[in-house]
Design a protein around this nucleic acid. Structure first.
Length: 495
DNA sequence: TGCTGGCCGGAC
DNA sequence: AAACGTCCGGCCAGCA
């Protein structure tokens, strides 16, 4: 496993003496640069230097500001000489020292908890990034080769359906969205887009061929390139600890967080080692339940099949995966929509029912979970007064009071809370493994899942430790609802 | 040629 | 009253 050229960096670039800034929160890129930032009285906490610069260009001089620059960002910013690290690295203790110096400000803004978390998490993430993900290259190639075959076959079928030119190519190339849309409309199909949803509703061989082609071509076009980035059989992504406005991480070059299910089994531990995958089951729903303290919701979450339990409460009928499954399906639709601040219109489209039916369903749902309904009301009101959103830990996101932020106000505390949770869990796992002396290391994180590589003999113990720490992290942050974790030990990344 | 925005789809 | 969240990346189309 390679070593990165330098460690976690605290970039403290501020004008004036005594300006030391470090760490944490996130400013949305699409936020207005001025207006929401009241310079003198605002502790500016940014993820990227670029944001800070734009703020300064706008004439703001925050008295305190904090930037957590990750090493890859710094490499990119170094521009002409990307090898030379632009700043000295700081060990974790010094991060905490810096945090202590600005502790009064952090406390004043209620940022003590997140700042600690992000500071603890930064070195964990960096170590993970440096390890990379072990790939079974022949298996990966094999999946792509099969996809290539499917793409070619689908293209042939498309040609058979829409006709071919002199060279045998389809008259309608699968990438031409505009022409595809026009072609189907001319055929009398009233579609508005060429999305999977629209095309999937069509009973036409050309539509089927197009969808098959797209699915297969996506695999080959996107994931062939991963093999060019291999080093020692491992693939290295660049993680941004605060990549998303919600506080979630992001990953790119390449993205290791959206590897499709059919390629995940090709992520494989080297000989003599195993992969340990552990994911929270339904963690965002549990967070909603914890935040709202809705007894009925909590009760349903304690049952074996949550969606069925909700459906039984909604419809007063026996429901399981086999009995009245359509009711379970409806309950599941609302349960997820809930997390995104979905409206009746979208829910109806999702479930294939009318908007008014969907509205009635939602009304009934909130009657069954009254404290949940109350929490939503409060969640929608708070940012209008305060101008920002918060997670329970204190992570905050500035919002524009003028704009309608409905769905965001409902989603941020949940998605952001999930980010707090997994980061806390990762820190606990790292500490727990060190203390137990087990051979296990984080190699990937995907929002509610931890992926570790371990020695084969330690695999089972690592899995149990990880599961325990994830549950404990849940108890720390969301004590109202126990978290559930599924953990598995396997040679490859499988679910 | 390179950039950008829109569309589309993978993950959660 | 109404409100579908967060990313990354590939391809196409339009523009300079």
């Amino acid at each position: 496993m390679g070593k990165l050229p330098f460690g976690p960096v605290i970039a403290a670039s501020l004008s004036g003496p005594g300006s030391s800034l470090q760490f944490a929160d996130h400013q949305r890129r699409d936020q207005p640069e001025a207006g929401s930032l009241d310079a003198a009285h605002f502790l500016l906490v940014v993820a990227e230097r670029a944001v800070l610069h734009s703020v300064q260009r706008a004439g703001h001089r925050p008295s305190r500001c904090v930037v957590l620059a990750e090493q890859q960002q710094l490499l990119e910013r170094a521009g002409a000489d990307p090898v030379k690290p632009p700043a000295a690295s700081l060990p974790p203790e010094q991060i905490h020292g810096l945090l202590q110096r600005i502790a009064p400000d952090l406390a004043r803004y209620g940022l003590t908890g997140v700042s600690r978390l992000e500071a603890d998490f930064a070195p964990v993430l960096e170590a993970m990034e440096a390890r990379g993900l072990p790939l079974d290259v022949p298996a990966w190639r094999q999946v792509l080769a099969e996809a290539e075959g499917r793409a070619a076959a689908a293209r042939t079928r498309l040609g058979a359906s829409v006709g071919t030119d002199l060279t045998g190519n389809p008259n309608l190339e699968p990438g031409e969205r505009g022409r595809i849309l026009a072609w189907f409309q001319a055929e009398g199909y009233p579609i508005q887009s060429t999305s999977k949803h629209a095309l999937g509703g069509l009973d036409h061989p050309a539509a089927k061929a197009l969808l098959d082609w797209r699915e297969a071509a996506k695999l080959t076009s996107t994931y062939e390139g991963y093999l060019d980035r291999l080093a020692g059989g491992r693939i290295f992504g660049r993680f941004q600890g605060l990549g998303a406005a919600s506080g979630r991480m992001s990953c790119g070059h390449p993205n290791l967080q959206n590897i499709p299910a059919r390629l995940r089994p090709c992520v494989r531990a080297p000989e003599g080692r195993v992969l340990v995958s552990a994911d929270y089951s339904g963690c965002e729903l549990r967070i909603v339940a914890a935040l709202s303290r809705d007894e009925a919701l909590i009760e349903a979450l304690l049952e074996a099949d949550f969606h069925s339990a909700v459906a039984r409460r909604l419809f007063n009928q026996p429901v399981s995966k086999t009995e009245n499954p359509e009711l379970r399906h409806q309950a599941k639709g609302i349960n997820f929509g809930l997390l995104y601040g979905m409206g009746a219109k979208s829910l109806g489209q999702d479930l294939g029912i009318s908007t008014s039916e969907a509205r009635a369903l939602m009304d009934r749902y909130f009657e069954g979970f009254p404290r949940l309904a109350q929490w939503r009301k409060e969640a929608l009101e708070a940012p209008k007064q305060q101008g920002f959103l918060r997670t329970r830990l204190g992570r905050r996101l500035a919002v524009d009071r003028q704009r309608d932020i409905g769905p965001l106000a409902l989603n941020f505390p949940v998605q952001g809370g999930g980010a707090d949770l997994i980061k806390r869990a990762a820190v606990r796992v790292e500490q727990g493994l060190a203390k137990a002396g087990l051979d296990g290391q984080l190699v990937n994180m995907i929002h509610d899942e931890l992926l570790l590589e371990a020695s084969a003999p330690d695999g089972q113990a690592v899995a149990e430790l990880v599961k325990g720490e994830m549950i404990t992290a849940g108890a720390e942050l969301f004590k109202e609802v126990p978290m559930a974790v599924d953990a598995a030990v396997s040679a490859n990344w499988a679910h």
